[in-house]
Design a protein around this nucleic acid. Structure first.
Lengths: 240, 240
DNA sequence: TGCATACTCAGTGTCGACAAAATTCCTGCG
DNA sequence: CGCAGGAATTTTGTCGACACTGAGTATGCA
């Protein structure tokens, strides 16, 4: 099965069937989603030919997507060998904690300074989506919407340099938290919802000090959650 | 001219002449250097076929290098159109100043915490190279070695997340400063050399507070230099 | 039986060619 | 003379093919 869904007779010459340039984006988005949701766990080798066959396109757009993912740090290219999903460096998680705490603070502060009313609407929409995911107890959706919520705050901060690291950290955090939620099975994510609400209020009120304080508390809370998870179930974490 | 330097008769089949996988790196390094030195000014369109001809390889490795450069933010890809060297956003330089000041501080602090003796040797070697460039009044080399000096400090900090932004900021700073040095013609770069020496001392002594203070002073000084340049010669800056 | 060497093969890196999209140039009309 | 429409050209995006690399396997020798 899955050899071809196309009509075997009608494809006499070639049917583009898909817009020029959309192929790369599709591969990129698909792989990125599967990596962040741990459908492709760290260390998984990615075979270009196999992917090309599965997604029904040539290896060229596949390779371009992989190069972009390598730029994001989500995959690692071993020269003349396969490219693999990047490992999560559990030995140096403190680097991650340190950086994401600082970036939470910086981006939330900047959002308090530079946000427009439109930014606020977008942020609130993401928070609403996050709440829906929490109520539905859908871990995958929770992680994705939580990431989008903070990414929107970063956007409102209007500093592309900070935003580039921040997005990278949020993606890495999504992978790390995915381990947590897969081992504790879609439970309520602590006081995250209320913390988000407080952050929105502070950003709306342009209260920079409150933004900083709330962001730090939020970061500390998440870091504490992850550390608790790691000490409770160290074996699984190390296995990955 | 420049059609081919190879023997026209001997190339009956094909001569690799170059290691597998080295092509992409060569294109990437070459273009990156030319972009950072403003040999390719912002807005310059990059023609794949032309580059392929000049560097004597197919378009495939050229395209891969361009995708990587786009990931670094050095070029901008316009879908179905040419890719161009990224513009410098002079209207929002405060974002750059804000971010690089913070990253100078963070990386120098971390270097003070985590540096090894080997790190210190590498940093001192880069500082020596920088001094040589200053004495030779070679602006291009000054900018490159200054960038490498701070990059080495970032490496000693041992936090890849910070390092990824920091490198990006240093590269952008190299482009911005290149305008400065091209308009003021290779003059002495203010008190940068002494500031570097003081930073090395603080890192060697593991004096975190001094690291932070010196990094902030260094950043402020460079920001002030750039701002002075911009107010003196606004036309040239805006022209770019 | 253990180890070094040669062979096989799956998989990447590069190439040349074709097709789609966009720009440019030309032509005809007002 | 200016402008709209269309043809020609330029340039990018995608494809299939092939050579080279490294890993796994088999083979021969001690």
């Amino acid at each position: 099965m899955a050899t071809s869904f196309r009509s075997p007779t009608a494809s006499q010459k070639r049917l583009p069937e898909r817009k020029r340039g959309a192929g790369v984006k599709y591969v990129y988005d698909t792989l990125r989603g599967e990596i962040l949701d741990l459908v492709l766990p760290p260390g998984t080798p990615i075979d270009e030919s196999q992917l090309a066959e599965r997604l029904e396109m040539s290896r060229t757009p596949i390779r371009e997507a992989l190069v972009r993912l390598a730029g994001d740090g989500l995959v690692t290219t071993l020269p003349n060998r396969s490219t693999v999903v990047s490992q999560i460096d559990f030995m140096n998680l403190h680097n991650f904690f340190d950086a994401i705490t600082l970036m939470y603070r910086v981006t939330t502060r900047l959002a308090g300074e530079n946000r427009t009313d439109e930014d606020l609407e977008i942020i609130r929409a993401h928070q609403a989506a996050f709440i829906r995911a929490v109520e539905a107890q859908d871990a995958r959706s929770m992680l994705a919407t939580n990431r989008d919520f903070h990414a929107a705050i970063g956007e409102a901060g209007r500093n592309p340099y900070y935003q580039s690291v921040f997005l990278r950290l949020l993606d890495e955090g999504r992978r790390i938290l995915r381990i947590y939620y897969s081992s504790f099975d879609d439970r309520l994510p602590g006081p995250i919802v209320q913390e988000h609400e407080a952050m929105i209020e502070a950003i709306a009120a342009r209260d920079i000090d409150a933004c900083d304080q709330l962001a730090k508390a939020h970061a500390d809370q998440i870091v504490a959650q992850i550390q608790t998870m790691l000490t409770r179930d160290r074996r699984q974490a190390i296995a990955l």
